[in-house]
Design a protein around this nucleic acid. Sequence first.
DNA 1: CGTACAATTGAGTGAGTTCAAGTGGGGTGG
DNA 2: CCACCCCACTTGAACTCACTCAATTGTACG
Lengths: 245, 245
Amino acid sequence: MPREIEPGKLPPSSCRECQIAPFTIYGPTIREAPNKICQLRCETRKVSAGRTLLREGDIPQKIHVIYSGWALYYKQLSDGRRQIASFLLPGDTLMLEAICFPRLPAPFSVKALTDVAICGFTTTDMITLLHGSDAQERKFSRARHQLLRFLHSRLFDLGRRSARGRLAQLVLELCARVKTRGMMADDGSFSFPPRQEHLADALGITTVHVNRTLAQLRREGVFSIEGGRLSVHDEEALRQIAHEE
Amino acid sequence: MPREIEPGKLPPSSCRECQIAPFTIYGPTIREAPNKICQLRCETRKVSAGRTLLREGDIPQKIHVIYSGWALYYKQLSDGRRQIASFLLPGDTLMLEAICFPRLPAPFSVKALTDVAICGFTTTDMITLLHGSDAQERKFSRARHQLLRFLHSRLFDLGRRSARGRLAQLVLELCARVKTRGMMADDGSFSFPPRQEHLADALGITTVHVNRTLAQLRREGVFSIEGGRLSVHDEEALRQIAHEE
DNA sequence: CGTACAATTGAGTGAGTTCAAGTGGGGTGG
DNA sequence: CCACCCCACTTGAACTCACTCAATTGTACG
């Protein structure tokens, strides 16, 4: 059975059968009362690659969760410079912040990297849901905390790490996220839609330099990206680079 | 009357007379019911420069608000590398996050840059207080949102801006924060305790390079730091550099 | 007057950039 | 089915911003 969900594929009509639901913010509820989620879900929609899901400054009307495909979470300047804060994978919540501060403008934009399918909930329903049980409340709290930890570690990466170190860190992080969602193939590779341009914008370096760094790590047998798939060949070395540089 | 509060000076016994209170997270309550704050305050303490107020991984027991002095909010690596996420000024809350996720370990450390005086509140009291009125709730929500915006803009700075641009951005931000707290002297200068080393760790560059960049901006007549005070000479130029580079 | 720490300056190096040209695969239209 | 084009990726060469190492100056403090 294929663990990878094709980008843009719509979710099953019943959330009970959704293979991603257990990994979402409402995972605890799925286990306890799966029907609740189906009832609250007010939208399922496919968004084509490149489309903007949310523009910086807009006030998010709904909370969306990604079912299939990858998205970007970024800040753009008029002169073309862009900083990608993170990639969003199946199971991730768009604008987790919006749940905490509804009615406040988004501090960044979100766009689809591949074709994407999303499930929508009203903000109020989501808030009620997330405070519905102890387990659910804990999960929500942990998720917000992780977001903050994540931002701080990215701050550290961008400020103090070399291109190699940042790249290794990013790959390691994505690996971990892909693994927990059961999207890792048996041979240790996984679907990797970002272009070198996206990596550059995430790492704060140029595409040319991403290319060279990638080539070096490939030559060293650490990991490689080929045909839209990433394979880690030497996880130990990867960890070391991510940790030390 | 002096607007600047001497680092390490203890707050007045009554919060009603505190000149910083209106700018804190509990500002709305100070206006409506100043006595409430005095009653909840369970600690006032002086901390010497260099002392650690909170270590990464610790679980914060109280919420502290700075009355006088500056503090640092940072992440340290064993090999000496450090990334300062931001500076904390009088009126700022230590671990605003702790209010949102009590009982979770701090994702970074906080240490006193100068002598510092702080007021302490129990986490539960603070949470109750912050949800005590509509105005208070809005203020809290806005503060958390600003924190997030701030982290995102720092991410952008570190990723995509030159040393000059980052420095200008930082100075501009600190200026704004100092101004709103009424700590700006009439001649447009203000007390600036950070050493070049701190700026380096905040900006993700070396002290040597901070020094050169600072020297260049001084030569250009944009701003200068002298005798622990920062004076902006050409705010227009500063804005332009901060915005464009 | 010595010590200590912050700021400054110089010289050499290196990581990452810019500009520019070339490769290769996949899709499309003739 | 081939020619063409487009896009992502790749490579080279020159350059520059920022780093490292190291020495010097200035300043506060005992």
